[in-house]
Amino acid sequence: MRWLAILSLAILAILPFFVPQSVVYLLGLTFIFVVYVISWDLIAGYAGQINLGHTVFIGIGAYTTALLQNPERLGIILPHLPIWLTIILGGLMAVAFGFAIGAICLRLKGYYLALVTAILPLICIQLLNVYSDVFGGYEGFSVGFGKALASSLIGKYYISLAFMLLCIIATVYVIKSPLGIKLKAIREDEELAEAVGIDVVKYKLMAFCLSAFFAGLAGAMMVHYRITVGPDLFDVPLMLTIILSAVIGGLGTIYGPIVGAFMIYLAKNYVFARIVQELSLNVSDEIFLYILLILIILKSPEGIFEKVRRMLA
């Protein structure tokens, strides 16, 4: 296990010197995507809450940093803030929303929770459109050339790699902590957990906020990686890609979702995109993603919880 992780890390560390620039760029994006997936897995795989609105946190983190870097859009004057500061503020803003959403929604049970959270990103997208003079509407906006994570591509790559590693380590730490153990207990049997004195709502809410924090950070990182922000960060296709990655890797297994995220993101943006180009099909590469998702759900409909249980058994 350990040597596998070290080996893959070593490969990733030297890779930029052997592959073309476009692949380096794509890998950098993938690292950030990995954080989307593990942060969703924290709430879905460990706390057992199906949150279909995870992209809300990603988007809020993204727009927070983008707007703080372009305060004239908000109609306010701010001193020039360093990028790392606004990225962290993006994460904190996501936590604030996570707390509010969690406090209201976590009372709802499975079905209703899924429904409410599925609707939230759509509201956000609508608001982006209505206040288009601030948020740039469906066209999004550019945070500005020169506000990238680093001026060189290699720099961006390593920052993004380091960010992923930090987030993975933090997540592992959380999972191994007493909080993580209590979350697992809640996931396995909520009533029993409550009976033995675990404050279910509190711990679920904590998990929700943590998940939101990492997602918000990742969303903000994404903005400064690609220097643009737009409603795609809120949108349903991104949510489905995250879910697909986590489900393929195996929910609640830390490393599973990471591997799943690499597979799906590279498959989507590299293999599928290439198939579409080579065959000059006039379709979006997302079509393959949806077909894959449908097939996977059909193949193992017992879905998320059972799968985890079987793997743990």
Binding site: L27, G256, M263
Partner: peptide, 20 residues
Amino acid sequence: RFGILLLIALLLLGCAGEKP
């Protein structure tokens, strides 16, 4: 299972690296 997944991922990386 994890090993297999990792292998596939590395393979993918490999072909991502090679073709271009």
